[in-house]
C-alpha cells in the first residue's frame, strides 16, 4: 500500500531551482533514508512534504491527502494541508521544542491543540510516550534542563502524540554530541520495528544499514540513484554516489 507519493516535485527559491523534479513513492511501513551532499535539497524535499515550503510544481500525497503545488491558496487547500500535517510528524535538526513548556507539556500540546483532548487524557498519552522514549523521569523538566539527545527524544514523542501516519526526520542527530546520537537513533529504530512509515535524512551510514528499507541518494536537486543500503553502499553505480560515499566514509573512519 502506498503511503507517500511524490510526483515531479519542483521547488525554486527565486532563480535557484533546488528541487528539479523529484518522483518518489513510499509504501506503508517503509523506512527510506535520504543521503546526499550538503545543499543537495534534502531538507527542502522534506519541508515540501509538510508544506513548510510551498513547492513550485508537482503533486504530494500522504495517506488520503493530496495537494497540488501552486494551487489556489483558498480555505479548502489550507485545510487539506493542515490535515496532512496532522498526519505527518516532523522532527527538526534543532528540535524546536517549546522552551516555555515542560517536556510533558510539549507532548501534550498536540493532543490538546489539535485533537481537543482533555488535559488529563493528554497527560496520560504524553506520559506513556515519554516513557516510551526513555524519559519517564523527565516529564517536568524544561527543555533547557535536558541534554540535546533528551530534547530530541521529547520532540519525537511530541510528534508521535498526534498518531501520525508518517514520520519525517531532518538530520535528527546532526546537532548532537557524538555520545548522544545513539539514544536518539535507538528510538527511531524502535519506531521502524513497530512499522512506522519514515523518511529520514541522515549521514549515519551504520544506522541506514540497520533500518533503511531503501536508501535514496540525492544531489543537486535530483534523485541520483536509489536501492537497498547494500546496493548503494557496496555497489554504487553513479560516480556522484561513489564520490559522496568516499568522503563520508573517510570521515567515519578518521
Amino acid at each position: 500500500m502506498t503511503m507517500i507519493q511524490i510526483e515531479h516535485l519542483k521547488k525554486a527559491f527565486g532563480d535557484n531551482e533546488v528541487l528539479k523534479g523529484i518522483d518518489l513513492t513510499i509504501d506503508k511501513s517503509e523506512v527510506v533514508v535520504i543521503m546526499g551532499p550538503s545543499g543537495s535539497g534534502k531538507s527542502t524535499l522534506l519541508r515540501c512534504l509538510n508544506f513548510l515550503e510551498e513547492p513550485t510544481d508537482g503533486i504530494i500525497q500522504i495517506g488520503e491527502y493530496q495537494v497540488h503545488a501552486g494551487g489556489k491558496i483558498d480555505r479548502h487547500r489550507k485545510k487539506v494541508i493542515r490535515e496532512l500535517r496532522k498526519k505527518t510528524g516532523f522532527v527538526f535538526q534543532s528540535f524546536n521544542l517549546f522552551p516555555h513548556k515542560t517536556a510533558i507539556e510539549n507532548v501534550m500540546e498536540g493532543p490538546i491543540a489539535i485533537h481537543g483532548t482533555k488535559t488529563e487524557e493528554a497527560r496520560t498519552i504524553a506520559e506513556a510516550l515519554l516513557v516510551k522514549v526513555g524519559l519517564g523521569d523527565r516529564c517536568d523538566h524544561f527543555p533547557a534542563q535536558l541534554s540535546g539527545g533528551q530534547q530530541q527524544r521529547v520532540a519525537i514523542a511530541r510528534s508521535l502524540a498526534l498518531n501520525p501516519l508518517v514520520m519525517l526526520f531532518d538530520e535528527p542527530t546532526s546537532a548532537l554530541d557524538p555520545e548522544l546520537v545513539r539514544e536518539v537513533l535507538l528510538v527511531i529504530k524502535s519506531l521502524a520495528e513497530e512499522g512506522m512509515t519514515m523518511v529520514i535524512v541522515t549521514h549515519e551510514m551504520n544506522f541506514a544499514k540497520e533500518v533503511a528499507d531503501r536508501v535514496v541518494f540525492m544531489d543537486e536537486g535530483i534523485i541520483v540513484e536509489q536501492g537497498t543500503s547494500k546496493d548503494i553502499f557496496l555497489n554504487p553505480k553513479e560516480e556522484r554516489t561513489k564520490q559522496f560515499l568516499y568522503k563520508v566514509e573517510a570521515v567515519v573512519t578518521e
Partner: peptide
C-alpha cells in the same frame, strides 16, 4: 525563533 512557528504549523495548528 522561526523554528517555533514551523514546529507549530507542522503539527497542524492554524
Amino acid at each position: 525563533d522561526n523554528g517555533q512557528m514551523e514546529a507549530s504549523m507542522s503539527m497542524g495548528m492554524t
